[in-house]
Simulated scan of single mutants.
Amino acid sequence: MKAILPISMTCLLILTGCQAVPERLPQAEPAPSAACYFSTGQSAPPLEVLTQSIEVLEAWGFQLDTTDTGLGLVTASRQRDLIGYYDPYDNDFGYGRSTRVFGGFGLGSGGSSIGLGVGRGFGGGFRHQPVEVERVSLLARDGHIRLSRDIRRFDHLGDLRESYSASNDDFCQRFQTAFKQVAATPRAS
């Protein structure tokens, strides 16, 4: 018994050394654009910067989800229907494009009973429109704004099918331009 213990401990140490360790921590892919971090160009209080940012987001059709004025954080989202959206994963399980059928049949004998059942198109989410949800998080602090944007697409059953970071140059530069226009507009007190 004494000879087995050192051998088993050696094997255990060898196996623990074979564990896969990630090369890096998870990151947003692709990385956010440099244009998504910019100076507000004003010495306005953070609350005023948040108000101006919210004005831009609401003009673009976003609805506020959460705000935390103490942190300088705003989260907003908008949703649109995806008419004609092709689900690239729809054929993976043999259902065919845009077809979900379930049902079956069964025979049983428990005395003198036989049963047969077929179903099609039942269940929540049938015939709902696929949607795209765009979410923007904005952090206003120390005279700077940092934007983060992601897009998620859901199929007609409400299942998440695509999700990606969309903090790109185009969106962030358009936001910067709109923010500076709102900030330059005089306010009525």
Rank of each mutant, 00 (worst) to 15 (best):
Y85D: 09
I14V: 13
V49K: 00
F126I: 14
W60V: 04
I54D: 13
Q63W: 12
S8D: 05
E132K: 05
L73E: 07
Q19C: 09
F38L: 13
R141H: 07
H144M: 11
G158V: 09
G84H: 07
R187L: 01
V49C: 00
R24S: 12
N168D: 13
Y89L: 11
Q42K: 09
D150E: 15
S189F: 15
G119R: 15
S137R: 13
R146C: 00
D170K: 14
G61W: 08
P22D: 10
G115P: 03
G70M: 06
I83Q: 12
Q19S: 09
S43G: 14
P26V: 03
T69G: 07
N168H: 11
F62P: 00
L160G: 05
Q129H: 10
A3P: 06
C36G: 07
T99I: 10
G94E: 00
Q27T: 08
Q173D: 14
T177Y: 01
F62I: 10
A140N: 05
G121D: 15
P130C: 11
R100E: 05
I114G: 11
E55K: 11
Q42P: 01
G123C: 03
R149Q: 14
Q19G: 09
N91L: 02
L147H: 11
V131A: 00
E132A: 08
S109L: 14
C172V: 06
L47M: 13
L73F: 04
S165P: 05
G123W: 02
A178C: 06
A35G: 01
F38D: 11
A76M: 08
D65F: 12
K2H: 10
S43A: 14
A188K: 10
T177M: 05
A31L: 13
L116K: 09
A34W: 02
F171H: 06
E48R: 06
P88I: 02
F179S: 02
G108H: 09
R141L: 02
I114K: 11
H144N: 12
T99H: 08
E134S: 12
S98P: 00
P22F: 13
Q42I: 01
M1F: 08
Q27I: 09
L47S: 15
P46H: 03
L160E: 09
R135L: 09
D68A: 07
G125L: 07
T10L: 15
G70V: 09
T51G: 04
V21G: 05
E29W: 14
R100F: 10
Q27C: 01
A76V: 02
A76T: 02
T40H: 03
D169V: 08
D150K: 12
D65Q: 15
